[in-house]
Design a protein around this nucleic acid. Structure first.
Lengths: 240, 240
DNA sequence: CGAGTTCTTGATAACCGTCAATAAAAGTGG
DNA sequence: CCACTTTTATTGACGGTTATCAAGAACTCG
């Protein structure tokens, strides 16, 4: 599919691009790749990672400790840049794994430098997207460091809900939610068992329900309050 | 002081720059500011934050919850870029506070766009520095999510030790360590009391000692092992 | 239907948080 | 320089949150 006709461009979350910019992006694209759930997109320690955007599906970034413990750092949704850190730094400290079946636009890592020389607007956007991802990780770190189990779950659900909503993936307060409890636990910094118990406690309290791999937010107000969010959320906006 | 004569340029951790690049940086610099310990460098929610580099001293980034809990996200050492996220996104989700007396080089935020247009090598380096900071936060998130109290302290000490060492600030396994126990606790996601107890347990176990605001690593091997670090650490290197 | 995975639930223990009181250190004013 | 106050660090007792162990239930998939 040509980038000019990319359906992601139509979503409100995406900035308008000039034809020149889109053509340049198209010229960097070397492949459109489809991977099954659980596939490695970037392997921990990989030195020659390409740069991707996630065209469809969900993925996550994670880091391992030598004894096997795993921390999920953040989740990636359609439109997100994948592997920027691994492309700029010479070796990935993290891995990236497909959570669902995914489609990736593969870009030539070697031409990233060319992009910085010739397309300042796109390089600015790359830096901006990097900062936005960092801001997400900041919030996860605050969650894991300061919130208790129930608050963490509420905060994660709200965060994913808002991101899905911005992509038009929410209908009737309900959206696809493909995380296993083990993945939830690794993202929240909790044990599997405690995650399961807390998760079902919040379900029974009427915050949300799940069925068929989808999550429905039944009580957004209560969930936000439990997540200890500020009333006024700061939406990231570009400077230019 | 003119940027051409900046002493930070001589440190091995810093990349060579052409005279052109340094002149451009000089032209963006609007002030050299000195602030006392505890001063706000960027206020949470601030919308017009300038861009800084930390010329001397220590600082930290933090995030607050509505009920007052605080998570310290990462520490900033001399040479670090300060406020990139706040400059690119239009409002800071975090605050930045001086930990010691600091000296800041203040750069015009409005000319950041100009930099991206005219200086691709510098914009690439900005993106690179942003990714490196994200990588640090990844590691803190993994620490807080997966390591227990002792492991977290060991990992933090090693991480700061290595960063100070790269700046030539370590002499005889000893370096300035200006954190209070409250700040330690907020960075580690632990209570003040538990931090104090674990800290003194590790001191008594001979991992390190403190006196006069300095920390001495007495047993680097044991400390690294307790921190559950990989044998082979991946040093971030630039692609170009 | 059977085998594997994922999820749930209860019992127990470890880790960590809170409360409270003391000690040490740092800042302040006479 | 010495009292005085304020902040920061230490230590013990106790309680709550979370981890671990274990077993069974529910779900998936061939």
């Amino acid at each position: 599919m040509p980038c000019l006709a990319c359906p992601l461009r139509l979503k409100p979350a995406f900035k308008d691009k000039t034809d020149d910019e889109v053509r340049f992006i198209q010229s960097m694209k070397v492949e459109h790749r489809r991977l099954p759930p659980g596939a490695d997109i970037i392997h921990p320690g990989q030195e020659d990672a390409e740069l991707y955007t996630l065209f469809a599906g969900w993925a996550f970034r994670y880091q391992l400790l030598p004894d096997g413990r795993r921390q999920i750092l953040n989740f990636l949704l359609p439109g997100d840049l994948v592997g920027l850190q691994a492309s700029l730094l010479s070796a990935a400290q993290h891995g990236i794994e497909a959570l669902t079946e995914v489609e990736l636009c593969v870009f030539s890592r070697k031409r990233v430098w060319d992009l910085f020389v010739r397309m300042p607007s796109l390089s600015y956007e790359i830096a901006w997207l990097g900062s936005r991802e960092e801001s997400l990780i900041d919030q996860n770190l605050t969650s894991v460091g300061q919130r208790n189990a129930g608050e963490r779950i509420a905060a994660l659900v709200i965060s994913l809900y808002r991101r899905a909503d911005a992509l038009g993936l929410v209908a009737d307060n309900s959206f696809r939610f493909p995380l296993s409890q083990q993945q939830l636990a690794d993202a929240l910094g909790l044990s599997l068992v405690h995650t399961s118990k807390t998760w079902s406690r919040l379900r029974k309290a009427g915050l949300f329900s799940t069925s068929d791999g989808r999550l429905t937010l039944l009580n957004p107000r209560l969930t936000s309050r439990m997540a200890l969010l500020y009333e006024r959320e700061l939406e990231p906006r570009p400077l230019i």
